[in-house]
Design a protein around this nucleic acid. Structure first.
Lengths: 132, 132, 132, 132
DNA sequence: GTGGTCTAGACCACG
DNA sequence: GTGGTCTAGACCACG
């Protein structure tokens, strides 16, 4: 799984850059790349790193604050918010939902159950490591 | 799996409506809801059904023509393009990729392997039906 | 110089089909493929041959009548109009204009005079046949 | 060579304005009036200058981006794309093709070879200047 | 200020 | 009836 930088933007996507950045930060947090209370890059720092305007980063951070994902301490920095326990359950529910959607699509594409199972086993093995 | 209409738009998403519609049509075709050479809703029809401007639908259809997903016959209608066999394999690859991403996220969230497996079994059962 | 049919339409062009057909007929006449007083295909005949709607052919013929290029005899057919002598001079002027535009473009592209001359000689030879 | 503005539109032509504009910009670039990386007029600026709607200019610029002729930097402007060297050869081929078509038409009109030659010499002299 | 999206609505091309 | 073009004008994203 090659990855340029933790956060990835696609400038030719129709989705606005600020919205992509919001999703990317949420993903980094959800995946545990950034932990609760960890300091994340400042507006300026991130703007330079991503080659975008600080205003754009600021807009994304605004949104993330509103969504309770990060918290800003003026003059200090931006930090990952502590994840409320409730968020845990919500995340599990999302996972379940995503699995169901993938399976539904496989069914719609007439993928045989056995083939789908094979894809699943491979995905788990690649990610969690060989069983036991 | 509740679903309002075959095609679903989220008007509060930052992704432009026309881009969402492009994805939705591609999804409907990929899932087999619309078959090659089938006539799909006219620009005006779809605009009314989705509550958006015909120009917006037209822009999406333009894009879909450019991507080779549909073909337009002026004065006649819009039709699903014949799917090249290569698209089949590509779709399977996408399925695999999505599964891997879900699993990776579960790992990042420290979801125990057993829990993840439970979610999977439930998703397959709900969708494909109980194993014989 | 391969050529499918005397008249060629490009259905993916942004220029309307009827307008393309007008130009194509004028070109066929200008090139002498259809001579004054010669009968040209009927609306229906041409519509079938070109795979377009008779209404579209009719619209083109209307335009050609208005421009004095063809004349319609109801119940008889459509004929190339006699070219007034004045048209001859006009055509020569057009040729001169086109040549000047091509040369101007060559100059703008910094094509050396000698190279341009070479292209010209080749074009004349290919078309009129070897000198003398 | 009278010319109102670098880009010329014919509002009475059946070819859509946006398509004419696409061709005009390509021509301006091909002729070297606009160089690679040069900033070309903004959507609004050009719309005002040409007396058309900004949306129409935007549609043309969209097409030009798709064709790789220009590149857009949001919030900054529109720029001529670097021309691949391959485009040079293509352009020469086009010149040759246009010359051949003019000559073919002259032949079809029974223009004597000597007369055609006279037109050519005059065109070159007027444009490139008198031969040394 | 620069490009992008969307609406409302008119009118055209094609069948 | 079906898609295509264009306008006038509002509002958004990005710099």
């Amino acid at each position: 799984m090659p990855e340029r930088y933790l956060l990835h933007l696609d400038f030719s996507s129709p989705t606005p850059v600020y919205a992509q950045l919001v999703e990317e930060v949420k993903r980094a947090v959800a995946r545990g790349h950034w932990k609760p209370d960890e300091k994340i890059p400042s507006v300026r720092e991130l703007a330079i790193k991503l080659g975008i305007n600080p205003n754009t980063v600021a807009k994304s951070y605004d949104e993330l604050v509103a969504q309770g994902v990060v918290r800003v301490q003026r003059g200090v920095g931006v930090f990952v918010a502590a994840t409320p326990p409730e968020a845990e359950r919500r995340k599990l529910g999302e996972l379940a939902g995503r699995l169901e959607r993938v399976v539904a699509e496989a069914l719609a594409m007439n993928v045989p159950r056995a083939d789908l199972r094979r894809l699943w086993v491979r995905a788990v093995r690649n990610t969690y490591g060989t069983v036991r």
